[in-house]
Simulated scan of single mutants.
Amino acid sequence: MDGREVLRFKLEELRRRHRSLDDAIAALEHSVAGRDSLDLRRLKKQKLALKDEISRLEDELTPDIIA
């Protein structure tokens, strides 16, 4: 397995975790107790960090093309 394959594998895992956090946030937002919750903010912060990492890996995998 070369470096690019490893990055692709890691990228897919991060995307799965991001979707999982999306589901957890939606469930928490629909619960009465979760409307203004510290847990909700924590999950959103984790989701944002994952999004940043996903973007970084996508940039690393996509070659820069100078037109």
Rank of each mutant, 00 (worst) to 15 (best):
E13S: 10
D36P: 02
I25E: 06
F9Q: 09
F9A: 13
R42P: 00
R35N: 06
I65D: 01
L28V: 12
I25W: 11
M1N: 11
S20C: 13
R16P: 02
F9C: 04
D23F: 07
D64F: 04
P63R: 03
V32I: 15
L40M: 13
L11K: 13
K47V: 11
D52C: 06
L50G: 01
M1Y: 04
D23N: 10
A24N: 14
G34A: 08
K47Y: 02
A33T: 14
D39P: 00
L40T: 10
K51M: 05
R41T: 06
S31D: 15
R42D: 06
E53P: 00
E60H: 02
F9V: 10
S31G: 13
A26P: 01
V6T: 10
R42E: 07
S20T: 14
Q46G: 03
Q46S: 11
E12I: 14
L11P: 04
M1C: 06
I65W: 04
D2N: 14
E5M: 13
D2S: 08
D52M: 12
L57K: 07
H30N: 14
R16Q: 15
P63H: 01
D36I: 00
E13I: 12
R17L: 14
D39T: 06
D36Y: 03
I54T: 05
A24R: 15
D36S: 08
R56E: 07
L38W: 00
R41E: 11
L43N: 01
D52I: 13
D22P: 00
D52T: 11
I65N: 01
R8H: 08
R4I: 10
R4T: 08
H18L: 04
S20I: 12
F9G: 07
H30E: 13
L48E: 10
L43Q: 05
T62A: 01
R19E: 15
H18M: 06
L28D: 04
G3N: 07
R19D: 14
L61P: 08
L50S: 03
T62D: 01
E13K: 14
E13Y: 01
R19C: 07
R41N: 08
E53G: 00
S20H: 11
D2L: 10
S37Y: 02
L40H: 08
R17F: 05
L14A: 05
S37V: 10
K47C: 07
E58S: 03
E53L: 04
D22A: 11
I25G: 06
K51I: 01
D23H: 06
E12T: 15
D59V: 02
D39L: 05
P63L: 09
S31L: 09
E5R: 11
I54F: 05
K47Q: 15
L28I: 13
L21P: 07
R56K: 13
E58Y: 05
R4N: 07
T62S: 02
E5P: 00
A33H: 07
V6E: 09
L7M: 13
L14T: 02
I65K: 05
R41A: 05
D52Q: 12
L14E: 03
L38D: 04
D59S: 11
R19L: 09
A27T: 11
V32F: 14
R41F: 02
L57G: 01
I66L: 13
P63M: 03
K51W: 01
E5I: 11
A24G: 08
S37W: 04
D59H: 12
K10I: 10
E53K: 06
L7A: 12
E13G: 04
E29H: 07
K47P: 03
H30T: 12
